[in-house]
Design a protein around this nucleic acid. Structure first.
Length: 316
DNA sequence: AAGCCCCCCAACCGCGCGCAA
DNA sequence: ATTGCGCGCGGTTGGGGGGCT
């Protein structure tokens, strides 16, 4: 009856992930793809529960994740989307593919919430502490219905487009997670490089292979280029460049010596190339443009008004 | 320099949903 | 139809770093 029991809690490691664990996890996912998280700890030898592995992957190691400061544009998008969707961080994150829901949630809780509170304290006494307008519950309900429908339609359209584009180059065995279909494992250079850099810092005597799992660092890097069939068939020169560079930079130098300023600058440049490459390959959707637009607030009102009008004429 | 406090964010926790057996 | 697990999500926590006294 039912599925076999989940990972037993005895012997499960908790707390921060070590670079070694990161490399084992990335290496495994490079080879098998994300999903089937239950099998990850047993197959890799990681003393982590499947949930922890999934979280580590989705929040930190997943390809295409941008870290660091949020741009003004991203900030505006988050504010608009939060007002529109509420604390549905996963939904909000779907419009900011380079950011994780956890990142957005943290950013909201630590920065934007305070900022909005500060902005609204004083003149706008009628607004609540979450930044919502004090509209009636019924209009909020209709608004919510419209938002859900809009979001569903967008996701359906995106999915259909993604499916259509990937029909020719996705093998069934390596089908990526639907929610991240627009990214490839090959695009995880930056994340892999980051974790390897941390690893180099923490463990000067680099370990080439993990005895318990059998996965190697070279596997982590080399599978990056071979698994690029995931969704984007256009491997950029920057990506190739970065790939070659990672090979030489991370492996051939033994991973232990301090790097020159020129090397760091070169690395920065390559990663910037990569970033630009990804950004140019993923044009903004109309909705995203709308969200980034300075006049989004007015458009927002117009859309809501439209939804309220159309809802009475049988839209829903 | 030392101690304290605050903030940030990675990770954990608990819940709900969907699906497999 | 029922049971129980996998997965995803949102809320919360606590360790560590930085700033202040």
């Amino acid at each position: 009856m039912g599925r076999p029991p989940c990972c037993d809690k005895i012997g499960i490691k908790k707390g921060p992930w070590t670079p070694e664990e990161d490399i084992i996890l990335v290496s495994y996912i490079q080879e098998h793809g994300p999903g089937n998280w239950r099998s990850v700890p047993t197959n890799t030898g990681l003393m982590r529960c499947s949930k922890s592995c999934r979280l580590r992957w989705t929040n930190y190691l997943r390809p295409g994740i941008k870290r660091g400061n949020f741009t003004d544009q991203e900030e505006k998008m988050i504010i608009h989307l939060q007002a529109l969707l509420g604390n549905r961080w996963a939904a909000i994150a779907s419009y900011l593919p380079q950011r994780t829901d956890n990142d957005i949630k943290n950013f909201w809780n630590t920065h934007l919430k305070k900022k909005l509170n500060k902005d609204q304290s004083g003149s706008e006494e009628g607004h609540d502490h979450e930044g919502h307008s004090p509209s009636s519950s019924s209009s909020q309900q209709i608004k919510g219905q419209w938002e859900r429908r809009l979001q569903t339609d967008i996701h359906m359209a995106k999915q259909a487009l993604s499916d259509a584009l990937s029909l020719n180059n996705v093998s069934p065995e390596t089908k990526p997670s639907p929610s991240h279909a627009s990214t490839t494992y090959a695009s995880s250079y930056e994340n892999i490089a980051r974790l390897m850099e941390n690893w180099v810092k923490t463990t000067p005597s680099s370990v080439e292979t993990n005895s318990s799992s059998g996965y190697s660092i070279s596997n982590v890097v080399t599978t990056g280029s071979s698994s690029s069939e995931g969704g984007q068939s256009t491997t950029t020169c920057a990506q190739d460049h970065a790939f070659d560079y990672l090979l030489t930079f991370k492996l051939c130098d033994g991973g232990s010596r301090s790097r020159s300023v020129e090397e760091n600058n070169k690395k920065e440049g390559i990663f910037q190339d990569l970033k630009t490459g990804f950004e140019t390959q993923v044009p903004l959707t109309l909705l995203e443009k709308w969200l980034c637009d300075e006049g989004a607030a007015q458009c927002h009102e117009d859309l809501i008004n439209m939804s309220l009008e159309e809802s009475s004429t049988g839209l829903f």
